[in-house]
Design a protein around this nucleic acid. Sequence first.
DNA 1: CCGACGTCCTGCTAGC
DNA 2: TGCTAGCAGGACGTCG
Length: 276
Amino acid sequence: MPELPEVETVVRDLRPLVVGRTVLGVEVGDRALRKPWDAAWVGRLAGVTIESIRRRGKWILLDLSGGARLIVHLGMTGQFTAVPTLALRPDHLHVVFTLSGLVELRYRDIRRFGSVVLVADEATAMASLDAKLGPEPFDIPPDGFHAAVTGTARTLKALLLDQSLVAGVGNIYADEALHRAKLHPETRGTQLTRPQVNRLREAITAVITHAIEKRGSSIRDYVGGSGLKGGFQDEFRAYGRTGEPCPTCGVPIERVRVAGRSSHFCPQCQRVAKSR
DNA sequence: CCGACGTCCTGCTAGC
DNA sequence: TGCTAGCAGGACGTCG
């Protein structure tokens, strides 16, 4: 569910609620998440203080006193919220951190595609993330991006979903960026001209930035770290708007399957480049 | 090596 | 009303 803007919103919401608090206890459900929970982690977490919280791509990092790092991924349906300890507990709760100050930090995930992992230190955390993640959307190197895009025959949709090209873009913002850049999702990287690559890069940055300002998009499950919904779903130009008029030209938005994901585009504004 | 595709899991909705 | 096929904000393993 959550892409970079949603994850960023969760982190910003959680920051004032959890930073400075101490972990008094951890409860773990018996249903497995994407990555296995190590029973030794409960003891290791007891008594540590949450010093800061940040994001890299779609991954959340909690910096803990003593150096350990908690790495959280929300998958498709994950929710990471801080609530009063007395608040009713919903189902599908998998990890609950009891914090000082009568606050609970809760990881909830219906489909269990997400993960909660503890690593020993900063170096281990960053090594695992940097190994698979490209730059953040705000500092994509123009030359490197151009080389990566034009050097592959993959479709633009597959490229944007690849976290090693740019970290944090998912299905929604891939479609939205392609619409803004006026590029068809099935266009091949090798077909793009330099100006088109630049347009795509700028569209990614713009869409992600704008979506963060709107606290991300809430379609079904997504809520921020304090349980609040996002607002960018009202600004979609293509995603989920099959049959509705393109905001640019009025032609109905179409949907096709690309890279295994449903992709929404305007058949008028986003033509597939003719491969010679 | 690269690119395409299946799989993990649960819940909701459209359509019959 | 009841059932089922299909679909859903992701990541990763496997196959050709």
